[in-house]
């Protein structure tokens, strides 16, 4: 699934939702699940296929934080900025990540290995401060541990 066009799989998804009311958000979810973001080419194809103006599709994509227009880095780092994490030092964790990776939040590292995101609440406030890399949750993170955690992801390459 690397070709960012309206592949057969996506067409199937669209067919599934076509006759249901208000399905655009759900179709976009499926596209993002497949590619990790919503490529412009796919939106163009989708617009023709559904006969919906491109502007209407973009208006929805850009409204919701969840949808991405850029291809994300290989590993997604999500730093929780919920209140509990904020109080227990999440800003320090975020700052350290930014410095170590030389990247701003919402962007990818230059090598494309990591994408750094700030998220609202991961729903595990008891473990604050929390960060998540891909599907793995790291709780009670200390600033000094971050380097080690990141290095595990660098090794696989």
């Amino acid at each position: 699934m690397t070709e960012p066009k309206l592949s057969e799989d996506i067409k199937k998804v669209v067919e599934k939702w076509r006759n249901k009311k208000g399905s655009l958000v759900m179709i976009l979810h499926e596209i993002q699940n497949a590619y990790g973001y919503v490529p412009r080419e796919t939106s163009l194809e989708l617009s023709k296929y559904l006969d919906v103006p491109l502007a209407r599709i973009y208006e929805v994509i850009t409204f919701y934080n969840y949808f991405k227009l850029e291809k994300p880095g290989k590993h997604r780092i999500a730093v929780c900025m919920g209140t509990a994490c904020y109080l227990k030092g999440a800003p320090v964790i975020l700052q350290e990540l930014k410095e170590l990776l030389d990247v701003e939040e919402g962007h990818n590292t230059k090598d494309g290995l990591f994408a750094l995101d700030v998220v609202r609440c991961l729903g595990c406030c008891g473990l604050a401060p929390v960060m998540m890399i891909d599907d793995k949750v790291y709780g009670k993170v200390k600033k000094e541990e971050i380097m080690n955690i990141l290095s595990e992801y660098g090794k696989e390459e």
Binding site: S23, V25, M26, L28, H29, V60, Y64, N65, Y66, F67
Partner: peptide
């Protein structure tokens, strides 16, 4: 029953915005 997914917009906790989002629109 069907499931609709939110997409990260706090304002969708507001009833009318939530409904707009279920309708597949911007959640205003």
């Amino acid at each position: 029953v069907e499931i609709r997914l939110g997409a990260g917009a706090f304002v969708c906790g507001e009833e009318t915005a939530l409904l707009a989002s279920i309708e597949g629109k911007r959640g205003t």
